[in-house]
Design a protein around this nucleic acid. Structure first.
Lengths: 340, 340
DNA sequence: TTAAAATACGGAAACGATTGCGAAAATAAG
DNA sequence: CTTATTTTCGCAATCGTTTCCGTATTTTAA
């Protein structure tokens, strides 16, 4: 193995002390320009790369941020990570990415793994199963900067980034009502989730304001299996008291609904109108095209990273105070909610 | 900061030597069961977590695998990473994930960053711009286990995982011909890519075999911008000599084609049939539903990880020999290629 | 009863970088 | 020409583990 050369060897080659070489490479004022040039040239010639672990051990920081998400095959999370990575790369930070698969046990394992200092900070969206937050509390207590986005955790007093879930759900529901929907169903993957609760509030308020009632049977709590979800939705659509509108809180439940509808004679938007939180570029290509609530994913990721890196590089100037920062979503009306 | 306790402090608490405690925690045969129990109990009580960097420095391994992909918002890559992560987690490995955004300069920067030992191995799919491979060669020369999948790099003598690109493209094209297509276009994002070349070979062979000709104007080299791609495809579809069939080598060009078609009066499949390499669960929901060549993403990821971790943990038993391992794709015929 | 071997543990070096402190050499000031 | 100051660099400690040795104690064998 052409294993890399180390600082001592490089120093020997230059007939200098390791400390001098280190300072030269780190552009210290204590070293003459001449020496610096010589060192840098030699370092390049010998293909020297400082050992990251030695440095991390000494400086007690890893230049690494851990990102924990519940699902990787999901445009929302993929885009947020792109946003995080963009800012992280600018500042020389690396990203460890973990997928919990919506499994709280996996989430706990991952979080525990992070207790050893592998990452300087953590930004995450909790799994839909997460209700006990002791593992997150432990992480927080350890002093590791911790940030939440989208699926946040109220119990941990740190900064959280979300979209205007309440308003979006409210507006989305109102839009359905304006399109003459009387019986609107609410599709979710877990009622424990912060975003579900907020979106449900918006949904309820819009419904009540219109003098309608939010029937409990219309709140459909789905699961992980696409096939089961399709079945669940199909059953609802085939019931006597079927809904004429749907607010879906996540993209994949809208997809499941489309699949379910294909199994029935129901027509969208004539018999059923649907609006969904979604971030796919295919929304306009579905049949009919899907009205979406589009979240500002890239911005969320960027803002998370900016704050986190600020905190890491200038702890005095940045505080991860207990607050919720809201970045608004945008509703794009398409054919699934308007009769032609 | 409730910074964690370290080994020495833990040892002091136990009135034992650090070496003993270390051995006890690592279940060494040299330590009595009694002492082990005591140490483990105290470690748990004091919430001790070994510093990963000290360990990495000492052992010269990081238990980390770097994954480099050209695009994150892409079902194919997301699924492959899920596969890699599954195996990696089983073996206690962590994943550093990097997105090159199809930019070879970014790819080079990332690869250079990896030269410092941050990762024990690298698995990657090259960017569409990558033709000069000196940065990858450098990584390889350094002795870092390096694996390619999908978009492979012939010049580096290591193991590569791909799908049967030639056969799939051949079969896909043949399917179009059987559906009576005479003028079949070939959509790609870069002709430099290994997969493009293979798929093009399959496409050409099928066409020639049928006595047709692969006209150069029907090989459309697209770019990064979705809007431009739509325009490019629209132009082709509106030209006098327009194609009646399309083989798309990547999912997003099929999407772009659908968008383009919406701008014209062309009907799918009556006027234009399309088949595409794709991994989206929405293929069946598009209008019309899209005939796809579905790649075994999860398996690819798992196999990559298995081989890599094998090589890392038992270097003697695993060799990253210069070979290409093929895992077959599956064609799913839907409405976009069959007239009803 | 004594030598040999096994058991259980401690001391200290090592991994590769950074940095506080000290010192030599070069320059400036008196 | 001497002293003070600046510039430039080396020595050695340090970060938290792991592991090579060495050693004291106990067990087994002779």
């Amino acid at each position: 193995m052409a294993a890399g050369i180390n600082l001592k060897e490089l120093a020997a080659e230059l007939k200098l002390a390791p400390s001098t070489v280190s300072r030269a490479l780190n552009d210290s004022y204590e070293i003459s320009e001449e020496t610096k040039k010589k060192v840098i040239r030699m370092a390049e010639k010998l293909n020297y790369h400082p050992n990251q672990f030695a440095r991390s051990l000494r400086e007690n920081k890893s230049k690494t941020i851990a990102v924990i998400i519940p699902e990787r095959i999901n445009n929302f999370f993929a885009q947020v990570i792109d946003g995080i990575e963009e800012i992280a790369q600018e500042h020389g930070y690396h990203l460890l990415v973990y997928n919990t698969h919506e499994d709280v046990d996996r989430e706990k394992k991952i979080v525990n793994l992070l207790l050893n200092g592998r990452a300087d900070a953590v930004v995450m969206s909790v799994s839909s199963q997460t209700s006990d937050v002791s593992h997150l509390q432990k992480l927080y207590d350890r002093g590791l900067p911790l940030l939440f986005f989208d699926r946040i955790c109220d119990e941990i007093p740190t900064t959280k980034f979300i979209t205007n879930d309440y308003e979006s759900a409210y507006e989305g529901t109102k839009h359905l009502i304006q399109q003459d929907c009387k019986k609107i169903a609410f599709l979710m993957i877990s009622k424990e989730l912060s975003i579900t609760k907020e979106r449900y509030r918006g949904y309820c308020d819009a419904i009540n304001e219109a003098g309608l009632v939010a029937e409990p049977t219309f709140s459909l709590n789905c699961c992980m299996s696409e096939e089961e979800n399709i079945k669940l939705i199909t059953d609802m659509l085939l019931s006597d008291d079927r809904p004429d509108g749907i607010l879906s809180t996540v993209e994949k439940l809208a997809i499941a609904t489309y699949h379910a509808v294909k199994r029935t004679k129901i027509r969208i938007p004539e018999d059923l109108k649907i609006i969904s939180f979604a971030n796919t570029s295919m929304a306009g290509l579905l049949n009919p095209s899907l009205t979406t609530i589009n979240q500002p994913t890239l911005t969320i990721g960027q803002e998370c990273a900016k704050l986190l890196i600020g905190k890491l590089t200038k702890p005095k100037h940045f505080e991860l105070i207990n607050q919720v920062i809201t970045i608004p979503s945008k509703i794009t009306i398409r054919s699934s909610t308007v009769a032609e």
